[in-house]
Design a protein around this nucleic acid. Structure first.
Lengths: 204, 204
DNA sequence: AGCTAATTGACAGTCACTGTCATAAACGTC
DNA sequence: GACGTTTATGACAGTGACTGTCAATTAGCT
């Protein structure tokens, strides 16, 4: 499937694909913003993006996946493994998160916030995002295992990863009246504070 | 599985309702076991339980909700608040979980395991369960706040709750080759070990 | 027995999602 | 430029979860 093309080729086909994908996502997010998630049908998105409904599902397996395109954990994991080995896993992850967030451009940050908003708001997407969180535990555990030279299936390693994801969940989830307060403070700052708190041993 | 049996009124109507509900859930779980979750349609469940498909949705808003009937966290929260106040939140929750699990009968434990199995196996249900986990964070946070006399919206309180849920997730989620090993060891023991590890400060 | 409110079933409809098949565009090759 | 191959696409039909409405039955109360 690869190898054949020259080392560097934008590829006309892939450029069209990327453009189609971007168009679908863009119009979808716009429609979600304008009419709400549930009120927007896949057919509407397809029509707005000027593709057939079939094509929509070729680019995104489900309607929710238009929103759930994190790719961010990969970024974080890379930074995670780059941290010095004498840091505790939680401290290393915290530093990695700061670094990864810092490397994002303003537009990427904006999109991240918009998708995060939808992720936390729409129950359907939120549920799926949790599943992604579970997957993220595995990714973090693997990285932590590589960093410490332990087995990726080691119970303690997975437990640390679970705790990390857990406090991130707690820091990003909207709560009753907390929601407005959360909108004020910065999500990334809250994540950092949560990791710091975990790092300190969760003192009350 | 005793509702409010004889406060003053069993209520013939409510007894029928409870029986219908139980019949639907029972047949649904059996069919899931026999044919798998996806291969089982709501119509099949309805027919097996001898009700109309409409009635199914009157008892369970979604197909997934047949499985997702935890009610357990309520039990745990009760035990949680009963723990002595000098224990750390994590230690108190751990003791509460042990106590709550211990109070379950053999049949309740069996159903708990069966639903847990489905919850961890079927992606659709697993995602929803994660949403339940998020809700559980809130419940635990409220209980912890009451126990320590703090604000339920306190950041640290919520963070502790998040960490607890996180390690429970890590301990119960099936991973690649871990799955078989997990099937061997006891889920409740793993949860207890995870809480102990968190209580000890997540040493690697 | 008679009245009221709840429970139910039948029915039609929406929408996410899947599969198949034919067309057309893009790629590599001569 | 003509050729086969691969790939993206659209039209279409179908499944199944879920929603709404309406009429018939049934429990509950007087």
């Amino acid at each position: 499937m690869n190898e054949a093309p020259a080392v560097q080729r934008p590829g006309l086909r892939e450029r069209k694909k990327a453009r189609t994908r971007a168009a679908i996502r863009e119009h979808a997010l716009r429609l979600f913003r304008e009419q709400g998630y549930d009120a927007t049908t896949v057919d509407q998105i397809a029509e707005a993006a000027d593709v057939s409904p079939s094509t929509f599902f070729r680019y995104f397996p489900t309607k929710e996946d238009v929103v759930l395109l994190d790719e961010f954990d990969i970024l974080a994991v890379g930074a995670f493994e780059a941290q010095s080995a004498d840091l505790s896993p939680v401290a290393a992850f915290r530093a990695a998160a700061r670094s990864a967030f810092g490397s994002l451009g303003a537009d990427e940050l904006a999109r991240l916030r918009e998708t995060a908003e939808l992720t936390l708001t729409v129950p359907e997407i939120r549920a799926r995002a949790m599943d992604e969180f579970a997957r993220t535990i595995g990714v973090i555990a693997e990285a932590a295992a590589r960093r410490s030279g332990r087995d990726p299936n080691d119970f303690a390693v997975r437990n640390v990863a679970g705790a990390i994801v857990g406090v991130i969940m707690a820091a990003t989830m909207p709560w009753s009246d907390w929601a407005e307060e959360a909108a004020g403070s910065d999500m990334l700052d809250r994540i950092d504070a949560a990791l710091a708190h975990l790092e300190a041993g969760l003192p009350l």
